[in-house]
Design a protein around this nucleic acid. Structure first.
Lengths: 323, 323
DNA sequence: CTGAAAGCGCTTACAG
DNA sequence: CTGAAAGCGCTTACAG
């Protein structure tokens, strides 16, 4: 049979409490005792039973990460860093893809309540009933929902305006905006607000399509935009999927990029798959992921957290804007 | 405080054993008792503590899934179905990306031994020391490594030959092969074997580049191939990443596809991101994933498993071969 | 059909 | 510094 802490204690000739102290390497163990225990552990090939310590400590050391779709390069990269950071605290990550279904969110809440996981990162969010998750350690990205859920976001407003100014400096006179609207309050909406504000300020026309869609339905927005505003000479596209589709479509229509049409995308540096070299506002995914995990661990441990953390984006000059 | 099974028992005026039977809805509970317990549970807002039942049952209801990189569309899709199928058995999935590091495999073995997870799916595999994972419930894809690890694969040999014949029927007379070689014994190698056999049989030249590389290093193979065999009129590319890169490169070199050059890829139907409409051999990812999970659950439960399961591929006629 | 009791393998005050 | 003991919240023979 698999050896337990009792077997180790017997073999080392000590109490099980002492073995436990060695496992969790607490100070208060004498050197000789310690080495006796250590070698007993080695001889028996002992490994602590995780389930037992979980029960005692009331911690699973597991967090859930809820993303809309894993196969989206942004979320894939994000998930990678969440895992890496969680690991530093001894936590593993349960990756759940919501496919935009609100039940998945409820399911995770219930997992927390059943103590299958200690907390969760919500990148998606459709639930409106805040009361369901009071007391649940949850941290979010971009979404602002309620007093109890800290979130990490990027400088959406400023970064968008900077990107627009960049195109204007390079001659753009009629700039469009494409975006997909989140279902709940989210700082992502700042991007369109920044766009509208700047257009008004500059006396330029507002040519915006910003709708609620599901992942995978980006075509709808692109179609709609193309129909209404085919004569723009600059476009700000909010989000990687949209910009991929928009770019391909524009090229297919014979637009010369960047000469006829300049494009800046929010997100876009995922090189390997898809169109490369978009000029884009790059969110520092790694930094955002690590910060989110840090906040979550604090929440789990009952330490004070920061409600809103803003991470600065980086502007990447690609081939879809003029020199 | 959070209510426990004791609180429910007290409120319902029954023993805790009875509550437990209701929770796990076993037959042997009287209707009246059952409804008393049920309403006590509802009143107290009771949720069973997962950690406690884990300890008693010696099951975490968790499996690990080890993939080389999550962000690869093939693995992303695969992971999705693994999760979906595992869920049917009440299992959650811990997604781990190995980044090709052998330590990650060892780490998972150790998680199994520490009872942090009940079993694992290995899509990657570099470890050679079989003795490390005897007794560990592990199931693999494509990789054949040892008596104790069942695996699921596709009909690599046959599917490759069919694809080659398809190009030959359409006029291809000099066909190349591009592949990345796995580090351990794997049925993926059947693809090149099928290619070489057929070329010999038809008296056609063998133009093959098949090397060991890491994910992300696909350029090396493409470069090498382009240099050696620039005059082929057909190409079989093993794997999605390679085919994406090869296709873009061929187009950049001014090749007319499919007129100058026909391409068939093993894997390729991941539409949304990247180049669409490759002619390809499509592995039924969903079916493979579900079958792998089924085998793993059997292994975990100590039931007999099938060592080798072959899933039939589907040939998809795209735009990179002639009509 | 149901209750009382043992035990899963740990951790952690408590006393020494 | 160290041991004995209680207890985490369940499940499961066992007896009735």
């Amino acid at each position: 049979m698999v050896p337990t802490i009792k077997d180790v204690a017997k073999r080392a000739g000590v109490g099980i409490g002492t073995v436990s102290r060695v496992i969790n390497n607490q100070k208060a163990v004498g050197d000789k005792t310690k080495s006796k225990v250590l070698s007993a552990m080695k001889e028996l090939n002992y490994l602590p039973n995780n389930m037992a310590s979980q029960l005692r400590r009331n911690r699973t050391k597991l967090i859930a990460l809820l993303v809309p779709v894993i196969s989206h390069p942004f979320f894939a990269k994000f998930a990678y860093y969440v895992e890496d950071q969680a690991d530093k605290f001894g936590y593993s990550v349960l990756l759940v893809s919501s496919q935009q279904r609100v039940e998945k969110e409820k399911e995770i809440i219930s997992r927390i309540k059943q103590r299958k996981v200690d907390g969760a990162v919500f990148v998606t969010h459709f639930m409106h009933d805040e009361s369901l998750f009071t007391d649940c350690p949850i941290v979010s990205m971009d979404r602002t929902f309620g007093e109890n859920v800290p979130y990490v976001t990027s400088d959406n407003y400023q970064a968008t305006q900077n990107a627009l100014e960049y195109m204007i400096e390079r001659g753009a006179r009629k700039i469009g905006f494409l975006g997909s609207k989140p279902l709940v309050e989210s700082e992502v909406m700042e991007r369109e607000r920044a766009y509208i504000d700047l257009m008004n300020q500059k006396g330029m026309p507002v040519c915006s399509v910003n709708q609620v869609i599901l992942h995978g339905e980006e075509e709808i927005i692109v179609n709609d935009f193309m129909q209404k505003y085919s004569d723009v000479d600059g476009v700000f596209v909010s989000g990687y999927s949209l910009s991929q589709i928009f770019y391909k479509r524009a090229v297919a229509q014979g637009k010369k990029i960047p000469n006829d049409l300049q494009i800046v995308s929010y997100d876009g540096e995922f090189a390997q798959w898809g169109v490369n070299n978009l000029t884009c506002v790059e969110q520092p995914i790694e930094q955002m992921a690590r910060e989110i995990v840090n906040q979550l661990i604090k929440k789990i441990n009952g330490e004070p957290t920061q409600m809103r953390t803003v991470i600065k984006t980086r502007f990447v000059e690609g081939l879809t804007t003029k020199k």
